[in-house]
Computed example of a mutant assay.
Amino acid sequence: MNYTLLTKGAPIKFLLAEDDHDDQMIFMESIHDILVPIEVSIVADGEKVLEFFKVADNPTPDVIFLDVNMPLMTGIECLKRIRKNEKFAQIPCVILSTSNSKKDIEECYKHGANLYLLKPQDYKTLTKMINMVLGLNWKEYSAPEQKSFFITEKEI
């Protein structure tokens, strides 16, 4: 069966790790244009992601969106820790960042991010990117070749 989050049959749960309030608002605006129920938990840094997982009542996210450049703990360090934790290692991690640094992209790929999305200039393109993430078959997903790992608005 082709399992996508769109066929899940229950509200989709996102965890967004983003320190910039404006980017948080753009993300929320983007998901309002998606016609499936999505619940978003927002944290401001990598340390808060790890704290989020320690709270038993918090929902296990279907997808984690990580910014690379955050205070206290970067998205890359947070990704490394998520991938080392058996309980959370299989959750899809999508990097959503303004950084197009080759080093950042390679580090995220090396440490198990599923996709690296370069933040677009407008929320409509971000909506298309999120829809693309929702349409992936995560049950049978394998990491793409590195050349397909980094996605900009030009590829959407």
Rank of each mutant, 00 (worst) to 15 (best):
M1T: 15
N2Q: 15
Y3P: 09
T4L: 11
L6S: 12
L6H: 10
L6Q: 13
T7D: 14
K8V: 06
A10I: 10
A10Y: 13
A10Q: 14
I12M: 08
I12Y: 03
L15T: 05
L15F: 08
E18W: 02
D19R: 03
H21T: 15
Q24H: 09
M25F: 15
I26P: 05
F27D: 04
F27Y: 10
M28H: 12
M28I: 13
S30R: 06
I31R: 04
H32M: 14
I38Q: 06
V40R: 08
D45R: 02
K48H: 14
V49K: 02
E51T: 13
F52H: 13
K54Q: 15
A56C: 10
D57Y: 12
N58T: 12
P59M: 09
P59I: 08
P61Q: 08
V63L: 10
V63N: 00
I64P: 01
F65S: 01
L66S: 03
L66V: 01
L66A: 01
P71T: 07
P71F: 11
L72M: 15
L72D: 11
R81D: 13
K84E: 14
N85S: 14
E86N: 14
F88L: 11
Q90L: 15
I91P: 01
P92K: 03
V94D: 01
L96E: 00
S97N: 04
S99L: 02
K102Q: 11
D104F: 00
E107I: 00
E107V: 01
E107W: 00
C108E: 00
H111A: 03
L115A: 05
L115K: 06
L117Q: 01
L117V: 05
L117D: 00
P120G: 03
P120I: 02
Q121V: 11
Y123M: 14
K124P: 04
T125A: 08
T127W: 07
M129F: 06
I130V: 12
M132Y: 14
M132R: 10
L134Q: 06
G135C: 14
L136F: 15
N137E: 14
W138F: 06
E140I: 10
Y141M: 09
Y141I: 06
A143Y: 10
A143T: 12
P144T: 05
E145C: 09
E145G: 13
S148A: 11
F150W: 05
T152P: 01
T152S: 08
E153Q: 12
K154I: 08
K154R: 11
I156H: 04
I156G: 03
